[in-house]
Design a protein around this nucleic acid. Sequence first.
RNA 1: GCUCCCUUCGUCUAGCGGUCCAGGACGCUGGCCUCUCACGCCGGUAACAGGGGUUCGAGUCCCCUAGGGAGCACCA
Length: 484
Amino acid sequence: MTGTDPASASATPDRPVRTRFAPSPTGDLHIGGVRTALFSWLYARHCEGEFLLRIEDTDRKRSTEEAIAVILTGLRWLGLIADQPPVLQSQRLDRHKKAIQQLLDADKAYRCYCTPAELARMREQAMADGGKPRYDGRCRDRADKPAALRPVIRFKNPPAGEVVIDDLIQGRVVYRNAELDDLIIARADGSPTYNLSVVVDDADMQITHVIRGDDHLNNTPRQINIFRALGQTPPHYAHLPLILGPDGSKLSKRDGSTSILACKAQGLLPSAVLNYLVRLGWSHGDQEIFSLAEMIALFDVRQVNKSAAALNLEKLAWLNQHYMKISPVADLLALAEAQFERAGVALADGPGLTELLAVQKERVKNLQELVEQSRFFYEDIVAYDKAAAKKHLRPAILPAMELLAGRLAALTEWTGADIKAVIDTLATELNMNMGRLAQPLRVAVTGGAISPGIDMTLALLGPDKVQQRLHTALEYIRRRARAG
RNA sequence: GCUCCCUUCGUCUAGCGGUCCAGGACGCUGGCCUCUCACGCCGGUAACAGGGGUUCGAGUCCCCUAGGGAGCACCA
């Protein structure tokens, strides 16, 4: 246990693969955490193992119910479902305390009576001596028990030898035990600390592969030592490189644009977010588009890059547009409906969502854009887009528009094809380009210069709304003509 | 300060000693298509951090430097 012993650092347990995602519920679930969850989930699926969720909510001051809800709903939205009910770390206190007692009994832990002031001095001294701020182990063999002081409990880290981590991503990383100090495993009030809890939980949950951010790499040798002191075999480790913000800086938990909630609010599709994330640090040749089934079949943590990746929001947007385009209408229905509801747009008075999606999904980047560019189907035009009206609703077009309104009113069949025929015929008769007629019409019925093909736009709008809006537009043009 | 990790186009990446005057994708950009927007199609732009080795040959192996990151709590 104290010597170099690479073989047992990550012994291969002969049991099915089991991964876990273990977030602490202290804020928004950001996109970096989601990727960690995705990789853990993918690896479990790939190996036909299990993926578990553990909420590390032992920091009562910072953990919140809302944050737990965000994690749960976020993962559900993405489809990263755990195979068992989530484990709440806060409910495992007894197990943690038992483990602490076990270490105490085995003389692998001891009580430390040093005061905070004493520890601070020790750190300063260590720094001054050119080392890292560490505890010197002075209470290891302390015989007295000062009644006035409430002790913490420290783990007896092996003093010599080294810990070898054969990390699935980082490769072999070696730490000398001399670099590690005796960390606190129980606070003065008896509550267990992070490194102890993690080890006990991972052991009890029979986790075989710990896939987490590489900010934990430095904790790993300590955790491996605790595993062994507890008589357990450490799991395999895979430390993922961190994700950086679009500007290359550290991803902030408070950065609104990178939280999973924000992605949803922006109308991004789960499939796009997943596809974007899987390509951050992992690739399969030149392939950019991966279905869930392909990800599961092809993904292997061992292929993940070691370097940090910066977020490229434009590429996410592009992928999202791609998925808007290729997703069957049926798959988008529920997501789109929710987005309209969030935006406060009532769908009752307008085309059905299925029909709308059929024409709109190919031309919008995300669901938010879908809502914004479809409002006019459901809500009255409050005002014309200024530039569009100025350019297209001018007096010169009045005769043509009046003719058009008449012919559309005479239509008995209100289909895209019939509408198109009317417009084409009139354009030919008047010797106009299709566009010279279509644009004013578009502004008249949508209020702006952007919409699906004019025939489909009118078809979806229905004859009544079209007539009503055309008359309003004709009045507008006449008024403008009179005004000179 | 100490320990550990990283370094190919602006960004994500391919590359696992010769097939690389470095490939794909996003972005940007020229053109085509076109009733608007978008899509699509054709083309362009742009990178092996620097320096030493090893080798017949290095983006690919080794070392150093520089730069970046993480951790070093009675937080998780």
